[in-house]
Write a protein that binds this DNA or RNA. Structure first.
Lengths: 205, 205
DNA sequence: ATATTTGTACCGACTAGTCTGTTTAGGCTA
DNA sequence: TAGCCTAAACAGACTAGTCGGTACAAATAT
């Protein structure tokens, strides 16, 4: 083993992600990344064959962190397993709480990429779609558990309701950016929680 | 008078908007715009002093169209003025209907710009914020009308609830892009409508 | 009526600089 | 000694923006 290359690689990933959130992928040059990280061009291309390979690595890392949050929220609400509606509501509450302890400016790499999709190889965009569908499936299961002993007050498509979580996240990030107010995301997740609570009728037990 | 320059200008605006939705602003070169429109560099810079001047013109045009939709939805629901809740719900329904008759790929220039904010002059971003606040105010008024004879089932911040409309729009566009499904936007607006309907208790009259 | 002027709209070659990516020649460390 | 990295030069395509010149319709002058 020589020096630990993972440190350099991680630094590139960290700083380039921050740059991309402010300049977009296309608007972020490799020279900018070199300046921010203090490494050289040789080192950059040692770790990433092309700029697009960096894009792929970034989305993989981001998606992994994203799934970790999902898994953690699932774990943290395991104790509510007996009461599916309660679990679903606490599951959303987990994200509200996580958002409150957040002070970095909000944003999602999926959205960033999706507004310049032609810059990326198809597999990069596929990876985003796949991750969103995993959220749909996981949350869909939670919802289906609720439906076992609750009716909805309106006819409801489970997939679409599950996707609504992602929708509120993504939309809140954008409005948050536009109005430069980091508290916005938590507020809108709360509206989502309200909606879920109102939508499911209490079963007469 | 020579030839009508407005035609050329409008063509530039139209085609560059489409390109920016696919490549991002930074990822769209002026040469690409020239190729798509069939005009020349001289003509482009005759109409727009810089690339950033195009960005500003585009956001102005987009915001204007955006406000027109808002005004139209207000007008079309004037007949419900006596019943504020009904008006609010039909107001949302207007956007659901408008979305259904849409076949071009969804997207919002605000979101596009906000994910590469460093590419633009501050006034461009200010214009986006101002337009979002106008939506907040207009919808806020509709909500306050409802509150005159309805309570909400949860404590509710009017501004935040008004912003929620924008949130659902923006989020739905992103998920729609990710999953390549244009029907998604209407579905999520429907969830929003459900939420509003459930949130406001019927007054005993 | 015809000639001249004026201003808008447009053309396209050109410049100065930036972009990603390559290459070369080497050094440092576990 | 193999993996990690520096430093600098370089290629070639592409970038935004410039500039001198042109086309043409309408206003004005003769």
């Amino acid at each position: 083993m020589a020096r630990d290359g993972k440190l350099t690689r991680d630094k590139i990933l960290l700083e380039s992600k921050a740059l991309i959130f402010e300049h977009g992928f296309s608007g972020t040059s490799i020279d900018q990344i070199l300046e921010k990280t203090g490494i050289t061009k040789g080192a950059f291309f040692y770790h990433f064959k092309t700029k697009n390979a960096l894009a792929m690595a970034l989305i993989e890392e981001f998606a992994k962190a994203d799934m970790d949050k999902l898994d953690k929220a699932l774990e943290n609400t395991e104790s509510f397993k007996g009461n599916a509606l309660n679990r679903l509501l606490h599951f959303i509450q987990e994200f509200i709480d996580a958002e409150k302890g957040q002070n970095e400016p909000p944003g999602c790499l999926y959205a960033s990429y999706l507004y310049e999709p032609q810059q990326f190889e198809p597999e990069v965009l596929d990876h985003i779609a796949e991750t969103m569908l995993m959220w749909r499936n996981v949350i869909g299961k939670l919802i289906r558990e609720v439906l076992k002993d609750h009716k909805t007050k309106y006819p409801t498509d489970v997939d679409s309701l599950a996707d609504h979580v992602t929708v509120v996240f993504e939309g809140a990030f954008i409005v948050s950016r536009a109005l430069n107010d980091p508290d916005i995301t938590a507020k809108h997740l709360h509206h989502l929680k309200n909606y879920l609570e109102l939508l499911f009728e209490q079963s007469e037990s």
